[in-house]
């Protein structure tokens, strides 16, 4: 039972990584007042580029860099369309998601002729697991030793980066000067503008960070979790990350907890399959699958706490008011 629990929690930590990275990206974008469910597209693009570059250079780090660049490219497309040209943010997101889906498969097919799948990466060109010091030796310590060995040690570097990103994001958003401007831009752009700070520049900066994180989440899928890219690899995880961010009320730590919760739902879902539980019997997998979405709606509806979006979200900032 104890080891089962540890294994489930271990799987939860791993599966939450792409969600955490993308959700942090979402925090930056939405805190600045820009809707972003183009995370799905950035994740997909990042996964494709990471696998491709890692294959060509035989270096996972170059792959990661490539993923970050494509993430930034996509978020700059989003910024140009919705910040500079004041187009519709929602439509821009839809465009990026569909564009990424088409582009990754078309290019993948044109370059590798394997139906969008990229070549298998050797272990050297991937992010493989790292054993933390003394993990094996400390196993003898009851409880804590197990936790250290199973949960904390033995992940790849992106896992650790993802969880470091959470306090970092929190610090930037709530403690730094940039964070203050960021939040103000999302709440009251007019005041920010009056104070002589460029609303659009702040949003651009936010979206650059957003692109970096979105791309990284994709790199995790194709160069850490697996060793290749396949079409539609993100499979809705970008939307799930967005839901987690909202569920976390646009706050990094809460968003991370929501990601963990959603990943936990997925982890137990694999294990509960066909296993009857006491009292309720066999739980349909679909019920567990729908938990994240239902929870998000319930929370948004204010039945459990209240999630309030940044006030200026979705509104392009137009300087010339008549």
């Amino acid at each position: 039972m104890w080891s089962d629990l540890l294994l489930i929690l271990d799987a939860t930590l791993r599966m939450a990584v792409p969600l955490v990275l993308a959700a942090m990206g979402g925090v930056f974008a939405e805190r600045s007042g820009v809707i972003d469910f183009g995370l799905e597209g950035k994740m997909l693009g990042g996964a494709f580029v990471a696998a491709t570059v890692a294959h060509l250079t035989q270096s996972a780090w170059m792959g990661l860099l490539g993923a970050i660049i494509i993430g930034i490219t996509f978020s700059m497309m989003h910024a140009f369309a919705s910040v500079t040209k004041q187009g519709n943010q929602v439509v821009s997101c839809v465009a990026i998601n569909i564009f990424a889906m088409g582009l990754t498969t078309v290019l993948g097919q044109a370059w590798f002729q394997r139906g969008g799948k990229t070549p298998q990466l050797p272990p050297e060109a991937r992010f493989t697991t790292i054993e933390l010091p003394f993990a094996e030796e400390l196993r003898v310590v009851p409880v804590l030793g197990d936790i250290y060995y199973e949960l904390i040690s033995g992940h790849n570097i992106l896992v650790y980066i993802a969880y470091i990103m959470v306090p970092l994001t929190a610090w930037i958003v709530f403690r730094s000067r940039f964070g203050l401007r960021l939040r103000a831009t999302g709440e009251n752009p007019l005041a920010v503008d009056t104070a002589g700070i460029s609303v659009n520049a702040t949003r651009y900066k936010a979206l650059i960070i957003n692109g970096i994180l979105g791309g990284m989440s994709g790199a995790y899928l194709s160069t850490a979790q697996l060793a290749f890219f396949v079409k539609d690899m993100s499979a809705g995880k970008g939307y799930l990350a967005l839901a987690a961010m909202i569920f976390g009320k646009w706050r990094p730590f809460q968003a991370m907890l929501a990601c963990l919760l959603f990943a936990f739902a997925e982890a137990i879902q694999s294990r509960l399959q066909g296993v009857p539980l006491p009292i309720v019997g066999v739980v349909p997998v679909q019920l567990i699958q729908s938990i994240p979405y239902i929870l998000t709606v319930v929370l948004l509806a204010g039945f459990v706490g209240k999630a309030v979006a940044p006030k200026a979200i979705g509104e392009p900032f137009i300087k010339e008011h008549k």
Binding site: A81, K85, N88, V91, V94, A95, I96, I98, G102
Partner: peptide, 15 residues
């Protein structure tokens, strides 16, 4: 799919 994405991008987002 790619063409659709471009149409959405230019005719929708970048209108």
């Amino acid at each position: 799919v790619l063409i659709q994405g471009l149409v959405i991008l230019f005719a929708g987002a970048l209108e």
